[in-house]
Design a protein around this nucleic acid. Structure first.
Length: 489
RNA sequence: CGGGACGUAGCGCAGUCCGGUAGCGCACCUGAAUGGGGUUCAGGGGGUCGCGGGUUCGAAUCCCGCCGUCCCGACCA
């Protein structure tokens, strides 16, 4: 930072910009343990709103919450072969407890499939016990080598849904349904457009049959995997003996799914909407939607305006036009700080809407508003102010999505793209490239080696090009799929 | 774990080459004025100079060892 007051700009150095926004908006701070972080109230407040919105959606789709323990016996981790292979290198293991070496080592969960399906096996006997639709909110540990605030840390918070079904069709439908729930949340709440689809073999969850994912594009044109949903097939039910007796009396293994989103989404929010003045929070996820800044010169004016600000806050928070979801308002009446300094601070923190209230506004029976996203300013009449403000917040929410989608589409390349051109794109601006792929993992590995880009997703029909490429971008052989390439976080 | 850089106040840094007992900006505290886009003045608090050892009358500075952090690579929600 050349100037202490200014952020590094996104154009100068995107990752420096990201770190500064996260630290200075007080979303998080580094903890003494390398690679782990403290989520501060400003960041946790966003996560809490994410949790609430998602939890409501999970409940609405018939899921219930439970909690499974942090520690998993080593033997459990080793029961599902691919799962072991996928996770072993990044697991933290407890070897000692109660002052002595443990007989069986305990893994700190990197995810909870093993313990959960072990328990499900205990609880399920008959098809009448199915489906089980369960979710837990938890912390998990994955020992990453290179970490970044929110995007990749040793420990993070997430939810993991786990379900058991009598048929594959039903499991498959569940995995797809939850992918849709994630998409609705990401687009409707984070205002972050995503591509949905499924992962190639090399990118899928170790131990599952198929991994579905939501992929978003950040402002530096790198992709962020924002959520995943797995069709686990019967791999875990076989490993953990999760059986049931069917209607016809046969004993069968259950079909499982698991799906999760994490605090990584907070990083996605920052990198989707943030600008060179700092964080921009979509109103629906903002712990504070509106900050009122009273403006005064003299002491008499101060008491008058602070009173007026309180009155305005009362009017806003008591308004019931949004039902139980009351407007979330904060008054900044700090002394010894000029209004301009306050504006910069609240902008850095991403508060969606600022209302300035000074003597002139009182005279005119209005407040002066400033949008965080566009920085557009306008006077709002006091009469009906709550409804006006709520409407404006709604506009901000939808404008953020529109702008993010326009950015993504501008950085999306389709059509007949040569591998040489592809390399130019990945070397330069980056972005999503839709291209044909012959389905060969060796080709995928070669592209990754040569360009650092990976197949983010084999897209759902809705996202596919109307004139999808018929040939593989690399080999020229007939294409098996149209796939989406990008460099990823 | 390999390659590079760096550890001095909460943060960012100067001082290290050429040893003499620590300084600047921001932040913080107090007071006064200021107050519609980063306010000014005055006063003030805060440092085992990463750790350990050595050389020296004397070490942030020179020597040896260790530790840690960051960046670049191999792994990843």
């Amino acid at each position: 930072m050349a100037d202490d007051k200014k952020l590094t700009t996104r154009a100068e150095d995107f990752s420096a910009w990201y770190n500064e926004v996260v630290l200075r908006a007080e979303l998080a701070d580094y903890s003494p343990v390398k690679g782990s972080m403290v989520i501060r109230p400003n960041g946790y407040g966003i996560w809490e709103r994410m949790q609430r919105a998602l939890d409501d959606k999970f409940k609405a789709t018939g899921h219930v919450n439970a909690y499974f323990p942090l520690l998993i016996p080593e033997s459990f981790m080793k029961k599902e072969a691919q799962h072991v292979e996928g996770f072993a290198p990044e697991c933290a293991v407890v070897t000692h407890g109660g002052g002595k070496e443990l007989e069986e080592r305990l893994y700190i969960r990197p995810t909870s499939e093993t313990i959960i399906y072990h328990m499900f096996a205990k609880w399920v006997q008959s098809y009448r016990d199915l489906p089980i639709l369960m979710n837990q909110w938890a912390n998990i540990v994955r020992w990453e080598m290179r970490t970044r605030l929110f995007l990749r840390t040793l420990e993070f918070l997430w939810q993991e849904g786990h379900t058991a079904h009598a048929t594959h069709e039903e499991g498959e439908a569940e995995a797809r349904k939850m992918l849709g729930v994630y998409r609705d949340f990401m687009e409707g709440w984070i205002a972050m457009p995503v591509i949905t689809g499924y992962k190639s073999e090399s990118e899928k969850f170790a131990g599952g049959l198929r991994t579905y994912a939501c992929e978003a594009l950040m402002q530096d044109n790198k992709a962020l995997q924002a959520g995943t949903s797995h069709d686990l097939g019967q791999n875990f039910s076989k490993a953990f003996d999760l059986k049931f007796q069917s209607e016809s009396g046969e004993v069968e293994y259950a079909w499982n799914t698991s799906w999760g989103v994490s605090t990584r989404m907070v990083g996605g929010l920052v990198m989707t909407h943030g600008d060179d003045n700092g964080l921009v929070t979509p109103p629906k996820l903002a712990p504070i939607e509106i900050v009122i800044v009273p403006i005064w010169k003299t002491d008499e004016e101060r008491s008058k305006l602070v009173e007026a600000a309180n009155k305005l806050k009362d009017e806003l928070t008591s308004w019931s036009g949004r039902g139980e979801d009351r407007l979330r308002v904060h008054i900044d009446a700090r002394e010894g700080m000029k209004p301009g300094a306050k504006y910069y601070e609240w902008e850095l923190r991403g508060i969606p809407l600022r209302l300035e209230l000074g003597p002139k506004d009182l005279e005119k029976q209005s407040v002066f508003s400033a949008r965080r996203d566009t920085r557009a300013k306008a006077a709002i009449p006091m009469a009906g102010v709550a409804a006006s403000v709520a409407q404006l917040l709604g506009t901000i929410q939808s404008d953020l999505f529109t702008a993010a989608k326009a950015r993504r589409d501008a950085a999306t390349h389709r059509g007949d793209i040569s591998y040489a051109r592809f390399k130019e794109i990945m070397d330069g601006p980056g972005g999503f490239v839709y291209a044909g792929w012959n389905g060969d993992p060796a080709v995928e590995a070669q592209v990754k080696e040569e360009t650092k880009a990976t197949i983010r997703v084999i897209p759902d029909a809705e996202f596919r090009s109307p004139d999808a490429p018929m040939t593989c971008m690399v080999t020229g052989q007939p294409a098996k799929h149209e796939v989406v390439w990008a460099k990823a976080y």
